[in-house]
């Protein structure tokens, strides 16, 4: 099987580590060769963060380059646009419609681009925009945004729903399993 590429992007502190842990666990359990790559340290302090998840028969590079991503899962609108050039032809963007202003916007040096997702759609990019934050709150915790997005991503995979749920059980603390399963289901059905 040709290597598949998923990028998870967002703002440092939004919880992308749990999403990549879930994906890594699930795909390894499915018997794929898997590489998951992220950068720790400086970039986690509210900066733009990116995680690469690659799986297939044999995966070499730990990173996903421009024009290679099958999916970009973005926790924030601007970050979806920042990494759009990594998308391959026919790739898909799944994006949380939350807006988090970066510091240059906060201090008025730069503008947050309006209608940035429409701009991508107009260029022929497949964009699934969902209000993951509201759905996560419906599930019981704003922090479950990451799992809502994983639920939405799961629609595109031939992996049984129960397997995703099992991966959630393995990756989150017992007290949070129910909230996260609900969040996953809300993401899956939206």
């Amino acid at each position: 099987m040709e290597t598949k590429n998923i990028m998870i992007v967002g703002v440092g502190g939004q919880g992308s580590l749990l999403a990549s842990k879930l994906l890594g666990r699930l795909l390894a359990d499915e018997g794929y060769d898997v590489k998951v790559s992220e950068v720790h340290g400086m970039s986690q302090r509210g900066g733009s963060v990116v995680t690469y998840v690659r799986f297939g028969d044999k995966v070499y590079s730990p990173v996903i380059d421009e024009g290679e991503a099958d999916f970009i899962v973005s926790f924030e609108k601007l970050e979806a646009a920042r990494y759009a050039k990594h998308l391959r032809k026919d790739g898909k963007i799944i994006v949380n419609t939350q807006q988090i202003d970066p510091m240059p916007v906060i201090i008025g040096k730069e503008e947050y681009p309006e209608n940035i997702l429409d701009e991508l759609t107009a260029k022929g990019v497949h964009v699934d925009a969902i209000d993951a934050l509201s759905l996560a709150c419906d599930a019981g915790s704003a922090k479950a945004c990451n799992i809502v997005l994983m639920g939405n991503l799961a629609r595109y995979f031939d992996i049984p729903y129960e397997k995703w749920e099992q991966a959630i059980e393995k990756c989150v603390k017992p007290n949070f399993i129910d909230i996260n399963k609900k969040a996953f289901s809300l993401g899956y059905n939206n």
Binding site: G46, R82, P104, P113
Partner: peptide, 9 residues
Amino acid sequence: SPIPVRPPM
């Protein structure tokens, strides 16, 4: 559209 940078802070 230009994409504003998002440095750590």
